[in-house]
Amino acid sequence: MSEQPASDPPPPLLYSMREEWKDVQPLDQSDLTNPLVPIFYPPEYKDAMDYFRGIVAKGEKSQRVLELTEHIIRMNPAHYTVWQYRYDTLLELEAPLDKELALMDELALTNMKFYQVWHHRKLLLLKYAQPAAELSFISKVLAVDSKNYHTWAYRQWLLAHFDQEDLWSLELPSVELLLQEDVRNNSAWHHRFFVVFDSGVREGDEDREQVLRREINFTKQKIAIAPNNLSAWNYLRGILDRVEVKYATLKDFVVPYTTPREERPVVEEEVLDLDNPRPSSSASLPCALAIEFLADICLEEGDTTKAAELFTSLAEEHDTMRKRYWDYRVKECLGTQSTRT
């Protein structure tokens, strides 16, 4: 084998050609002669994996294993076993975990959709219990993809696992910022629910009545800005269900969203009703989500006729895409009615 000319950027040298790996016996994948879905690995990957198998077979955990596993992970970030072996090697060598986390910062940004990147990070945090810096890292990732599922799951795990008041205290402001950027960010809405209702009671939030009022008002304001926002209506339903408050308590708020704009009489005081903010002037009305909500209020109140009427308007006019579902709700209303009478 000749040396690469110095002028060309050398390709990554195969492990099989490196003096310092001579002591490792590479292990072939040795598949059957007629395998199902044969995968034609590029030579660089195959070579690295042959040496990885060799390393695992002899149980070596050393600095060069960290180099090898990083190399493979960069080619295939989904390789569970390589990640696992890397983690065990880090622990065995008592390698500096802050350095590993710094590497993970880079790998998470380029591979944020891989489960393994996040799982490895979680394992590191369990050993290297310094969660404070993690939130700013998470913000960096969310700046690239504000709805990345793994990132949000990791954030919730981090908060719940370390359960430190100074971590929790930053969560609502951070969610509000994200919702200001994109009021339809369902991940941010979900996280708000997690922080407020699903993970214990925070300092300052002991008065649950007050928290409920705050959350309902917050959501109403967001709905007023953009009424056709599924996430906000889901949140509203979610908190009412959780605290077992009837939907009907919000009837005054909901009704103005269920009628076309011109039908509403213009009343000056409307603007001042902070409890029941009106739809913004640019909102497209009526809003199908509000009609559904009002229909559910009617069902709560036992008015199946009115509910059926509202569902029919969704089926025929305001949400024809889901006609079959609304027809089913109408049928359900009428069924209840006939068994009653």
Partner: peptide, 22 residues
Amino acid sequence: GQEPHNEAHGGLSPDLRHRHPR
């Protein structure tokens, strides 16, 4: 996933309404 501080929260909560649709 229902209890506070439950580790399983990363995707196992049964509350469909607030879960990521996937």
